[in-house]
Nucleic acid binder design. Structure first.
Lengths: 222, 222
DNA sequence: GACTCTATCTCGGTA
DNA sequence: TACCGAGGTAGAGTC
């Protein structure tokens, strides 16, 4: 990690064209070679950056960072105010919990939590417009397309409607039920779901974990 | 700007739950109060962060950053390796060029680039669901709703479909044609467009600039 | 404040 | 590699 504080001017040409007038900024060069130009505000996003892999060529008065894709970042350095290097070593990386994937996993193992008698056909069931999160069958053997979101918004209902449309083209599945499942469902999404004949269901993440899984463990390790 | 290099452990609880095992990282605190935890790699995005406004309380062995929305970032500091503060002063901000707005501008001045005989009614034509990028009329006088993207994906087709639905409610405009225009259009977006009766058109930014504008200049400055 | 939409989106998974 | 979807999306603009 290399941290340089400098009065600089920055120009980027690549996916767009951007210019930064002269000011004091932080130049951050990470071990993987990526370069970021930070102002002292405006949240965590840098003003300008160049991802790895790239080539950084340093001159006394400027840095030229170029990538194979034809992007170029030119940092004109008017004055260096501070410079620092540090070796961090490897980072063990971020562990996340509570995202959509976990919710999908929980429901795939407990389809009866959605409705009595529900059973799983397949996770990520493919259609020509993308995969349905879960394809299930209800107690009467009717196909049910399930779309899972952390937060249920209008986009998700649109997505599920598209999938149902495609699945209904398959005579072995039609007519397909559609079930929109989320930890919380926005009022607008609920309204749209209703008008589309899509069932909307809120589930609680912690409650779900209490419900018996289809793969019970002898020793429930915590 | 405050830059601290420290061996630390990080826990975030809020929109999700995340944990970072002990390692050396950069802690960046900006003048607006936002806090970011950077590893020495992985592009410009921090591993963890907390946006302003928030409250940072420092103890000898840990930082507690909390927000009004109930998010909490706990940074346990095992060892401080370096600390630095610097006052940057104001930043004049970024100037951008070549984003979607420019593509829209180019097409608004050259609607015939979309189709022979096309003419512009209005940019950002309002509907109750948001503005349509361009409303045009074709050579037969039929209304055409145009949605412009840099990259055409499935969401954009949905967006345009919603607008057309609204515009079709206006008897002076109906039936409205829908035209999805982008520098590149994803296969799935094309599939959806087709099934929705939406025309899909790829345009080249540089070619467009070559086409005569409706506001020709006497002196074409470069 | 709520809603909408863009983004050099980033990032991860998958065919 | 390209494509596709999620994101603690963030951030800007509008109403």
């Amino acid at each position: 990690m290399r941290l340089v504080i400098a009065r600089c001017t920055v120009d980027y040409q690549g996916r767009l064209t951007a210019h930064l007038p002269e000011a004091v900024r932080l130049l951050m060069v990470k071990a993987d070679g990526c370069v970021a130009v930070h102002a002292d505000g405006g949240a965590f996003k840098p003003l300008n950056w160049m991802n790895a892999p790239n080539t950084l060529v340093e001159y006394p008065d400027r840095w030229e960072v170029t990538s194979a894709k034809g992007e170029a970042l030119l940092i004109t350095i008017h004055e260096v105010l501070s410079e620092q290097r540090y070796d961090f070593g490897d980072d063990p990386g971020l562990q996340k919990d509570g995202v959509e994937a976990h919710l999908q996993e929980l429901l795939a193992e407990r389809p009866w939590a959605l409705e009595d008698g529900m059973s799983l056909v397949r996770r990520e069931y493919p259609t020509s417009l993308g995969p349905v999160d879960l394809l299930c069958t209800d107690s009467r053997g009717r196909a049910v397309a399930v779309e899972i979101k952390r937060r249920g918004e209008i986009d998700g209902v649109e997505q599920l409607t598209r999938y149902r449309e495609r699945l209904d083209m398959d005579s072995r599945l039609a007519p397909v039920r559609a079930m929109f499942v989320a930890q919380s469902i926005a009022p607008q999404a609920r309204t749209l779901a209703e008008s589309r004949g899509v069932e909307a269901l809120e589930v609680d993440y912690d409650d779900l974990r209490q419900i018996e899984s289809s793969r019970p463990r002898l020793f429930d390790l915590h």
